[in-house]
């Protein structure tokens, strides 16, 4: 046009401000699309506590119940399975569940058996590696994956191994002990998963 001198500073200013405002607009417009991927209100609604009778679970048996769509293992551990627990300590990543696995159980289950009552194991059956459901291999007999197997869990996905308290062995991909959910005993033969015992935080 008639202007012979190009005002470079003014041009740069306008280019920059236009780019910045445009950029902010693009970022703002992307947010709803990213947000749309988050769990919807419907997905968040699920999750009531589950009550389960223990009467029919015999010694050495495991029952799987669904809680928040997750498998919860309820195991009636035998005395020999319980005896084997302390002997595993040297082969475990975090035998006392007070290191990397400190947050994997409520305080009232942070003990040798990782439970309220020694024989009853109540545990979320999800491998801490990449989330598969480990197989219950309760018998104490040589297994292809361990000639000294003392009972426990074997994950089919990447072959992580846990003992009868869900404590992870060394040298496997899973980093932590399996999660103990909040639970309490309603009476001697009934357990409720999803609610802490009274008085426990």
């Amino acid at each position: 046009m008639a202007n012979e001198v190009v005002d470079l500073g003014r041009r740069r200013f306008l280019t920059t401000t236009t780019s910045v405002v445009g950029g902010v607009g693009v970022v703002a417009a992307v947010v709803p699309f990213i947000k749309s991927w988050e769990p919807s209100a419907r997905a968040k609604a699920a999750g009531a506590p589950v009550t389960q009778s223990l009467k029919k679970i015999e010694s050495g048996q495991q029952l799987i119940v669904a809680w928040r769509s997750l498998p919860v293992f309820i195991v009636n551990r035998t005395p020999s399975q319980l005896d084997a627990l302390p002997k595993q300590d040297s082969r475990l990543v975090d035998p006392g569940s007070n290191g990397a696995s400190a947050d994997q159980q409520p305080k009232y289950a942070q003990n040798q058996t990782r439970s309220i009552k020694p024989e009853w194991l109540v545990m979320v059956g999800i491998c801490t590696h990449l989330g598969c459901v480990p197989n219950y291999v309760g018998e104490m007999k040589p297994e292809p994956f361990d000639p000294n197997w003392q009972g426990g869990y074997y994950c089919p996905c990447h072959h992580s191994r846990y003992d009868m308290a869900g404590r992870v062995y060394q040298g496997v991909p899973a980093p932590k002990n399996m999660v103990i959910p909040p639970y309490h005993f309603v009476d001697d033969t009934t357990v409720q998963i999803g609610v802490d015992p009274q008085g426990a935080a």
Binding site: V93, A100, H129, L130, H158, V168, G171, V172, P175, K176
Partner: peptide, 12 residues
């Protein structure tokens, strides 16, 4: 490769 590399320092 994922299966062969064990966990360390509390992470997989």
């Amino acid at each position: 490769i994922v299966r062969m590399i064990p966990s360390a320092l509390g992470t997989a």
